[in-house]
Design a protein around this nucleic acid. Structure first.
Length: 486
RNA sequence: GGCGGCGUACCCAAGUGGCUAAGGGAGAGGUCUGCAAAACCUUUAUGCGCCGGUUCGAAUCCGGCCGCCGCCUCCA
């Protein structure tokens, strides 16, 4: 496997610290507001990274934190007039609601900053004792110029940064780039006792303390959004390596941003969509497919049109599975070989290797999905050729199974066509129940049997207007929810 | 100002030295169908922002130019 390491700026062979095991830490969220689609991208991308390592038979230990104490949480608490820990609790719950819906698996360990205060204090103390940090009036700062490697991740020198600094100058800091490890509490703010007086941890220190506690002083992969490279991850490296005198992380992985009209989606620009706004109108599987349709390091433009395209793609998969199901139910027992059957067999033979080759190359999900749809087309070609017999049955079943299995790594393609369509019925808020649709279907079946095409077409048109498409096949009539611009 | 990235068909998007430049969407034509739908087939980039260069050979490497974006402040 090859992964792009932000630290080296190139793709590298992935060699785990311990053979067969991989330890991953991903920066989660600060729980002070609803998550937007950018948070979803990061969550989905690293969820897939984790699933792929597992597919590759690695023993994966996956840690993702919650920042549950921070200035933003304190401010939010003031705004809402509720205690700060109530804010954290509420938005942690909302996080789970969104991420569970998106099919993001829970991490093996989900540490919270407030549950690691002793570890954080111990680490800050070590840094002070070693002379990497200094205390000023109850605040403790990391002294950046004491750490020679500072800037190695974000590829800048300290001089450049100081020169172009837009950082507000704090007179108490020895250098504008020095960052807070511990912040003294102001009147009425949440606080924990420490050797420097009551206060709370700075933002960066929690990730160092928690990742090292749960994964060790050196671990394999640290991930997050590209906006965390500087200063967050740069600072994590400085304080962690200063503390342990060991390399902190072997591979740094960063996902690209979501853009709207080519501009980065962000809280401050206000051009963001929350996950639940999107899930109100699109199926979670569609959102995942959308987020994985572009390589994880590239920017991805968010638009309604793109989501609809993804919906059409996913629908294509389930339509094909439905075709296979219906076909196999009625397939005659006689054997009938076709050339297309052989072509499918051949394509299926190399399919997993192609999938793995794509994913091995820095998690190229876009290419992997491309291979999946090539297989979908070949399945359809095979069905069109109307093969029959046990080996054809086995082949079609295996092909669908291969798509489900590889789809499992991306957590797509996991439902039945019936589940997909009944879910679409709800997502699109169609004013029809499945019972009603089936009733109309049997009415139409009678009409067609009587060759009353007018009535049959009328029923079809009515359903079409209500968002349901009918397909008459030799094996009977099936219904689907209308997607895209049909 | 410093550092970095991107520019592939009507749209999205893979491809980073060598077979016909994946895949999806949209459009057009066709096969199938009672008619449709779905599916399949054909078709839509002699060319990968522009100009040079390296090479037997470049979308892919190098240089310049144009355009877009990101980071340097909280941010996934």
């Amino acid at each position: 496997m090859r992964v792009y390491n932000t630290l080296s700026g190139k793709k590298e062979d992935f060699i785990p610290l311990e053979p067969g095991r991989v330890k991953i830490y991903v920066c989660g969220v600060t729980v002070y507001d609803y998550c937007h689609i950018g948070h979803a991208r990061s969550a989905v991308v690293f969820d897939v990274v984790r699933r792929y390592f597992r597919y590759r038979n690695f023993d994966v230990r996956y840690v993702r934190n919650f920042t549950d104490i921070d200035d933003k949480i304190i401010n939010r608490a003031k705004e809402e007039g509720i205690p700060w820990d109530e804010v954290a609790r509420k938005y942690t719950e909302e996080y789970y609601r969104d991420m569970d819906a998106l099919g993001i698996e829970r991490a093996d360990v989900e540490p919270r900053a407030t549950e690691h205060i002793p570890e954080i204090i111990a680490m800050v103390k070590t840094l002070v004792d070693k002379g990497y940090a200094y205390e000023v009036g109850g605040d403790v700062y990391f002294e950046v110029k004491r750490f020679p490697g500072y800037g190695k991740l974000s590829k800048r020198s300290m001089d450049e940064m100081v020169a172009g600094a837009r950082v507000e100058v704090d007179e108490r800091k020895r250098n504008p780039l020095d960052f807070a490890l511990w912040k003294a509490a102001k009147e009425g703010e949440p606080a924990w006792e420490s050797p420097w007086g009551p206060g709370r941890p700075g933002w960066h220190i929690e990730c160092s303390a928690m990742s090292m506690k749960h994964l060790g002083e050196t671990f394999d992969i640290h991930g997050g959004g590209a906006d965390l490279i500087f200063p967050h991850h740069e600072n994590e490296i400085a304080q962690s390596e200063a503390c342990t005198e060991k390399p902190f992380v072997r591979y740094w992985l960063h996902n690209g941003f979501i853009t709207i009209s080519k501009e980065k989606m962000s809280k401050s620009l206000g051009n963001f969509f929350t996950i639940r706004e999107i899930l109100d109108r699109f199926d979670p599987e569609v959102v995942r497919a959308f987020l994985l349709s572009t390589h994880y390091r590239s920017p991805i433009e968010f638009s309604e049109e793109q989501l609809i395209e993804s919906e059409v793609s996913i629908n294509r998969f389930y339509s094909t599975v439905m075709r296979v199901e219906v076909y196999l139910e009625r397939m005659s027992g006689k054997t009938r070989k076709t050339a297309e059957e052989e072509m499918l067999r051949e394509m299926l033979g190399g399919f997993r290797a192609r999938f793995e080759e794509a994913m091995d190359d820095d998690f190229n999900t876009a290419l992997a999905i491309g291979h999946m749809y090539e297989l979908v087309r070949e399945i359809n070609r095979c069905l069109d050729s109307k093969p029959a017999g046990g080996s054809a049955r086995e082949l079609l079943t295996e092909a669908v199974e291969a798509l489900r299995e590889t789809g499992g790594v991306l957590n797509i393609f996991q439902r039945s066509p019936a589940q997909w369509h009944s879910s679409l019925l709800r997502t699109k808020k169609l004013p029809l129940t499945e019972e009603e649709i089936n009733r109309r279907l049997s009415e139409r079946r009678e009409a067609r049997r009587a060759r009353d095409w007018q009535k049959a077409d009328r029923i079809r048109d009515e359903l079409q207007k209500a968002g349901i498409v009918l397909e008459d096949t030799p094996e009977g009539t099936v219904w689907r929810v209308k997607v895209g611009s049909e």
